[in-house]
C-alpha cells in the first residue's frame, strides 16, 4: 500500500507519488489544451454578432414555420434516390467487404506478411475518409448525381463492414472448423460449412447496422451534389426558402427514425 513518511508517521495515500503526478500531469495537459483551443475558437468568432442571436433564431423560426407541406409531393424522387443510395450502397460495399475481411482475418488470410497488410490498408483508408469527402471526389470524377453518391457510400462502408466482419471471423470456434477439415473437405468447403455459418449472425447484424448509418449519411450527400434529398436541401437553402428547408429537415428526421426502427426490428429477428 502506498504510504508517505511524514514526521516519522506513515500517512496512507490512494496512489503512489509517481502515479499521482502522472495523473495530475494528464489533467493539466488536457486542461491547457482545452483552454488554448477555446481561446482560438473565441478569437475566430465575431462575438458582437452574438448579441442578437435570440432575434436571429426567432426570425428564422418564424420564417420556417409552418413548413411547406405541399412541397412533400415534389420530394418523392429525392427520397427514393436517398433510399437507393443507402440500400444499394450497403449491398455493393458488403460484396466488396467480404473478400477483404477474409483476407484481413488472421485465421483465413492467405499470407500474413503480404496480403493482410494490403487488406488492412484498404480498411483504414476507406474508413478514415468521410463519405462526404468521397462524394466530393466522385462528383468531380463521374459528375454530379446519384451515381457519385452510390459509389461514395459503397467505398466508405467497405472499411467499416470489413473491420467488424474480420473481427467476427477471428472469433469463430476453431474446433468446428477442424471437424469439417477432418472429413476431407476442400478449403472452399471448409469455408462454406465451417466458417460461413458461424459468422452469419454477425454478418446480418453488420449489414443492417451499416444500412441504418448509410440512410443518415445519404441524406446529406446531396449538399456536395451527389444526389438524394440533400440536393433539395441545398437548393432550398441557396434561395433561403425556409419553409421548404424545415419540411426537408422533418422528412430527414422521419427517415432516420424509421431507418433505426427497421434496423432494430430486423436485428432482433435475426439474432
Amino acid at each position: 500500500m502506498p504510504t508517505l513518511e511524514k514526521d516519522g508517521r506513515k500517512i496512507w495515500q490512494v496512489r503512489t507519488t509517481k502515479s499521482q503526478l502522472i495523473r495530475w500531469g494528464a489533467w493539466l495537459v488536457g486542461l491547457a489544451a482545452f483552454i488554448f483551443s477555446w481561446k482560438e475558437i473565441s478569437d475566430n468568432t465575431l462575438w458582437f454578432m452574438m448579441d442578437n442571436v435570440g432575434e436571429v433564431v426567432a426570425d428564422i423560426a418564424g420564417r420556417a414555420t409552418p413548413p411547406a407541406w405541399s412541397f412533400v409531393f415534389e420530394l418523392g424522387r429525392p427520397i427514393w434516390d436517398t433510399l437507393a443510395i443507402a440500400t444499394l450502397g450497403t449491398f455493393f460495399s458488403l460484396v466488396m467487404a467480404v473478400p477483404v475481411a477474409f483476407l484481413a482475418a488472421r485465421n483465413t488470410t492467405p499470407s500474413k506478411v503480404l496480403v493482410r497488410p494490403i487488406a488492412l490498408l484498404i480498411i483504414v483508408s476507406t474508413r478514415s475518409v468521410n463519405s462526404l469527402i468521397w462524394a466530393l471526389l466522385l462528383v468531380s470524377i463521374v459528375g454530379p448525381g446519384v451515381l457519385a453518391g452510390l459509389i461514395a457510400i459503397s467505398i466508405r462502408s467497405i472499411g467499416f463492414c470489413a473491420k467488424l466482419l474480420y473481427e467476427a471471423i477471428e472469433e469463430i470456434n476453431v474446433v468446428q472448423v477442424e471437424a469439417i477439415k477432418a472429413t476431407g473437405a476442400s478449403p472452399m468447403q471448409v469455408m462454406a460449412y465451417g466458417i460461413v455459418p458461424q459468422i452469419m449472425p454477425a454478418f446480418a447484424g453488420i449489414a443492417v447496422f451499416r444500412w441504418d448509418i448509410n440512410i443518415r449519411e445519404s441524406t446529406v450527400l446531396g449538399l456536395v451534389g451527389a444526389g438524394g434529398i440533400g440536393l433539395a436541401l441545398q437548393s432550398s437553402l441557396n434561395v433561403l426558402a425556409w419553409p421548404k428547408v424545415s419540411l426537408i429537415l422533418l422528412v430527414i428526421l422521419v427517415a432516420v427514425v424509421i431507418g433505426e426502427w427497421v434496423s432494430a426490428k430486423v436485428r432482433g429477428a435475426i439474432i
Partner: peptide
Amino acid sequence: RRKMGMIFQEYALVERLTVMENVLSGRL
C-alpha cells in the same frame, strides 16, 4: 482424411446448421 472419421470432445458440430447438414458434411 475421408478414410478417418473423427469424433470430438465438445461435439464440434457446426451449431447453426441442421442435424442433417451436419451429418451430410461427413460426405464433403
